[in-house]
Design a protein around this nucleic acid. Sequence first.
DNA 1: GCATAGAGTTAGAGGTGACTAATGATTGAC
DNA 2: GTCAATCATTAGTCACCTCTAACTCTATGC
Lengths: 237, 237
Amino acid sequence: MIDVRPCCTMPHTPAVEDTLRTIFVRAGRGEPVGTSAVADELHVSPPTVSIMLKRLTAAGLVQRTDGHLAALTEHGSTHARDVVRRHRLLETFLQRVLDVPWDEVHAEADALEHAVSPRLLDRIDRHLGHPDRDPHGDPIPRDGGGIGEEWGVRLDSAPAGRAFHIERVYDRDSAALRYLADLGIAPGVRIDVTERQPFGGPLWIRVGPDAHALGEPLTHLVHGRVVAPAGARGTLA
Amino acid sequence: MIDVRPCCTMPHTPAVEDTLRTIFVRAGRGEPVGTSAVADELHVSPPTVSIMLKRLTAAGLVQRTDGHLAALTEHGSTHARDVVRRHRLLETFLQRVLDVPWDEVHAEADALEHAVSPRLLDRIDRHLGHPDRDPHGDPIPRDGGGIGEEWGVRLDSAPAGRAFHIERVYDRDSAALRYLADLGIAPGVRIDVTERQPFGGPLWIRVGPDAHALGEPLTHLVHGRVVAPAGARGTLA
DNA sequence: GCATAGAGTTAGAGGTGACTAATGATTGAC
DNA sequence: GTCAATCATTAGTCACCTCTAACTCTATGC
């Protein structure tokens, strides 16, 4: 639902929508939203973002804070949520209906999200049974608000000897996602953190019936909840 | 398949692709391809098309004939076929998988066709089982060539007292398509042309078990084949 | 305290796509 | 044969998105 597109003093071009979405997601993760960070994520130059932020600010969608950081206004947030909703619903659709692997859905949804009409998005939502989360575990915003953007504990901070319930996988890099998929790491999976070297050394985990070892510490990739002592409740079928 | 996108001296922007597709379809129907006709179909002004045609001509995708008419070169035709393939596969997908009514699929596909990657299109094609025709009966081009663009007899020229096998419905106007759907007219359907007034007067047809009357003559909308005397072979279940 | 690195912005420019208004060319009507 | 209508084009603008190069500002290091 959330249909908010035809309004505002500025047209909602793909570049505008991409910028709003990027600010929304970064801010949701608690990361500082600077010009260069957004530029990096969108694969454009900083001046391009600088100009866009100025336009968005003039339109009342963005406000600048502190040292040139950007934040969405309430109005901007409404529009950004709509874009994020489109993006995540499409990711879910692509994975569930067309078997697109989860390391590809982001790029495809990125292109499609600007071309989907509200009516079509509604059909997709209905077809999927109004899903809560996309293939990476990210919440799909909807009218009522619903699930928030909270991120939980990062796997690289999970204590050894406990089970860890994976809720979200942030990384969008294809190689990283394929690597994680190979390890069996995905939202909904429980893993045992069996051992950890002191001082951030290698992390040993058990996923499913097989034991896998992570040779390097996982950084800012996998988020979730510590739920029980490792091996408890026979969770790993 | 038909992947021909990364090549050429000019970028394949949505405007370029739309123009190529429009020329391809109009020419396929045997209609003259003039600047204004293309402009009408794309809902832009004639100068916009004029400039685009000049660029396409310079890029070797279009050649001008007679009085400023446009025709695709062999190279342009290859690209246009690719766009048409994307468009028609998407229409088919939207109708079959998401139940989008046939009077809406064109507009949705129009937006999506520029955002679908070759890889995703391949998945869609596979998911649908490599369909031959889209919801309007238009052939979906593929590598081997396959079905051509021939249009058959127009319903308004079909003789009274014969059955008529509908193959294609050209019109893209939503109201017209809904009107036809209400009458039961769609590709694959057989209808009896029961009576016709002389001099282009009202056309009476029978579709399915019910008799429907067309109050006005159907113009250039429905194409197909005259197959048998009306009422023969109990075709209308 | 000053130099330098990093981040952000300004300046200048180019490509694409769209418009309106005016001009040229062809065709059809009378 | 001329006039009008239709069609295509040219001219002149404008908005959007992107870039590189140069400049400013801030913070960090020594």
